[in-house]
């Protein structure tokens, strides 16, 4: 399998007013995602996992290091190569669901007929086609986030970057959408980097879990989740799932009394 993205010695430093030493948010991160692979990133809150994702997508310029997607360097946001699904769904309330899904295609200059057709296809994949002409405030939060996923998929990008996309949803909805994502991404052979703070989500979705440390943000550990996709809820009850989850929990090494950030 070829590589969808290669991240090489990526560092991000911040300077803050009245503080002479720069803060090292990310320190020489090496990482790659194969074509069709789903990699989740987990770590304590404030470990820079969102910063890592935003940097890989070109929203933050790295202090040093490089990002290559499909062999060519990425120097700024390029939605055809790497597309985001944000934690806040950020749908535009004045557009209906198809128009929202077609937003990136519209920005890319694709004509109305073909972008609507492509957006409808994505909505069908998400089983949302009957809501196509509703507005975001008329549908539930879970549906809104599925629309945001469809908006990213419509770009047919080499890599999908998901920044705690289901963080605002309740546990039930979250697992349901997780299974849905697992199905669609497998079906479409999509590569994705998925940031989460939920251990269950991280293990359930991933081919590989990457564990990040806090300041400086470094990769502490990588764990392969060797279970064929798409997965169903039954996987949650298997011995292997529970073992990986406990291992990760121990690795997170959260001091007692400060565990709420690591698990939900």
């Amino acid at each position: 399998m070829s590589q969808a993205v290669i991240v090489d010695k990526l560092s991000v430093h911040y300077t803050i007013e009245q503080q002479p030493e720069p803060i090292v948010a990310l320190d020489e991160i090496d990482l790659s995602v194969k074509k069709g692979e789903l990699v989740t990133i987990i770590g304590p809150s404030g470990c820079g996992k969102s910063t890592l994702l935003h940097t890989i997508g070109g929203l933050i310029s790295p202090t040093s290091g490089s990002i290559h997607i499909d062999g060519t360097p990425l120097l700024g946001p390029d939605p055809k190569r790497a597309t985001f699904v944000f934690q806040e769904y950020t749908l535009l309330p004045w557009k209906n669901l198809v128009e929202n899904v077609a937003l990136g295609l519209k920005f890319a200059g694709i004509d109305r007929a073909s972008r609507t057709a492509r957006a409808m296809e994505q909505l069908k994949l998400m089983r949302l086609e009957q809501y196509a002409h509703m507005h975001p405030d008329q549908v539930s939060g879970g549906m809104q986030q599925r629309v945001a996923v469809a908006r990213a998929l419509a770009m047919e990008p080499q890599l999908i970057l998901m920044d705690e996309p289901f963080g605002a949803l309740d546990e039930q909805t979250r697992m349901m959408i997780g299974a849905e994502i697992s199905r669609i991404f497998t079906l479409e052979n999509r590569s994705a980097l998925f940031v989460t703070h939920s251990l269950d989500e991280a293990v359930f979705l991933a081919d590989r879990v990457i564990l990040l440390t806090t300041r400086p943000g470094r990769i502490k550990e990588e764990i392969i989740v060797d279970e064929p996709r798409p997965r169903t809820r039954k996987f949650l009850e298997t011995r292997r799932f529970v073992d990986i989850r406990s291992h990760l929990f121990a690795s997170l090494d959260v001091p007692a009394g400060d565990r709420e950030g690591a698990d939900t």
Binding site: P77, K80, T83, F84, F86, E88, G104, K106, F107, A108
Partner: peptide, 16 residues
């Protein structure tokens, strides 16, 4: 800010 970021991430040209 989240809408600004959306526009950047999805490569919105100035007019759009």
């Amino acid at each position: 800010a989240k809408r600004r970021r959306l526009a950047r991430a999805f490569g919105a040209p100035l007019r759009h």
